[in-house]
Design a protein around this nucleic acid. Structure first.
Lengths: 228, 228
DNA sequence: ACCTGAACACCGTTCAAGT
DNA sequence: ACCTGAACACCGTTCAAGT
């Protein structure tokens, strides 16, 4: 009881898979969930994708590729903006980035939440690592524009903090299905980086010993560690 | 061909499950992976756990409960430290927290990476939300101790940023199997919060319009959004 | 060509049987 | 009581058959 060829079926399957993967996650999503939503049989799925995981990979990769293009464009704009000393342009780039995450919130949810614990967990890593690299470049540009900052604020720490903050906002987008009205937050964030010029900050940093290592015994292996 | 009762089997299963869930994730981990590692039959697993997911839940909960105890203790200590104006004690609390995450890196990996895309994804949310609540309280204490900060640095943003940073360090612990020697980073982080006193920061914040909303059209629904 | 759905394989879960 | 492993159920994947 086959039906006539449907030239839109591939796109219908992609749309259905994006929604199902985003809301259930790769591991829990059933192929039958996807094909039911797309109005096709389970067999039809395998005419368009080699496997459930291949479908996930194809959709997530399309999103990550678009993200990488945006970040590359922004890194260039950011360098220009900083060299010109135009913080307003920097804030606009943040705005554009958050807008992108909001518009692509279903594939974003797939990448952040959908594949962890499966062979495609590396998609989340790629998202975070891409943002981290972008932040390193932006902050380097900032430090070139304002050399006095470089002595006070550690660039690697600032990039880690910025990326963690982006992750928290991305998480809010996909958890609360609400855009994060964070313009003022992003302004505060950029402002904070300029704060290293403060003599009070320099004084606090001199008051502690940065050579002390964080952990008592890094060589000690960790057991299940659920015992008290 | 049954064997004699083994009073250690439950603990062996917990240890094996912690390792397998941390390295494979709940969805991908097989019960047979766990029972093979513990040297038992598949059937024995179900004498001690109602299901694979119940085992995950039991181990993750034990870790999260310990984390909550630590955070509660620290929130109290943090308030005291801030009231006394002792930033060194605050840095020690950060140190202790990172040490805790390092010592419990296997259950941490389970909670952050193991259950996303399954009904137990909420464990990761609980970790992040607990840290976020803790950071809110710490920062409130900071603002009470240094009232001039409260006018410049948004407490909710600072808590979001702090939590994102902790997440990034936690991620580094479980990805790189390396302790994050981040003492100097944590010092820089604490110092940054005090930076709002800087007149330059106040000036930059006045120069931008915080009432502008971040996103163009928050009501617009998101499709699969993989099209260009 | 394109699609269907019955059949097969894998692994979570159950349970009759073994000590 | 405690444990085993064969059997069952569910869902990813395949493929013979339909248009």
């Amino acid at each position: 009881m086959a039906r006539a060829a449907n030239p839109h079926l591939k796109q219908q399957l992609v749309d259905a898979a994006t929604e199902i993967f985003a809301s259930h996650g790769l591991a829990v999503a059933r192929v039958s969930d996807i094909t039911d939503r797309a109005g096709a049989s389970k067999g039809a799925f395998y005419l368009h994708f080699a496997s459930k995981e291949a479908a996930y990979s194809e959709i997530a990769r399309a999103f990550l590729d678009q993200l990488l293009v945006l970040l590359r464009t922004q890194s260039i704009a950011m360098c220009d903006a900083c060299a010109d000393g135009v913080p307003e342009r920097v804030a606009q780039a943040d705005h554009q980035f958050m807008e992108f995450l909001w518009q692509h919130r279903r594939p974003l949810a797939m990448v952040l939440d959908g594949a962890v614990g499966t062979p495609y967990a590396s998609m989340q890593d790629e998202f975070i690592d891409s943002v981290l690299r972008h932040m390193r470049e932006s902050i380097s540009a900032h430090h070139r524009a304002y050399p006095q900052l470089a002595n006070v604020i550690d660039a690697e720490f600032a990039a880690t903090m910025a990326t963690g903050t982006v992750f928290m906002y991305a998480r809010r987008i996909i958890r609360e299905h609400q855009p994060p009205f964070a313009a003022e937050h992003l302004v505060a964030f950029r402002a904070l980086f300029a704060a290293g010029q403060s003599p009070e900050v320099a004084e606090m940093m001199r008051a502690t010993d940065p050579t002390r290592s964080l952990l008592v015994d890094p060589a000690q292996p960790a057991p299940g560690a659920t015992a008290p």
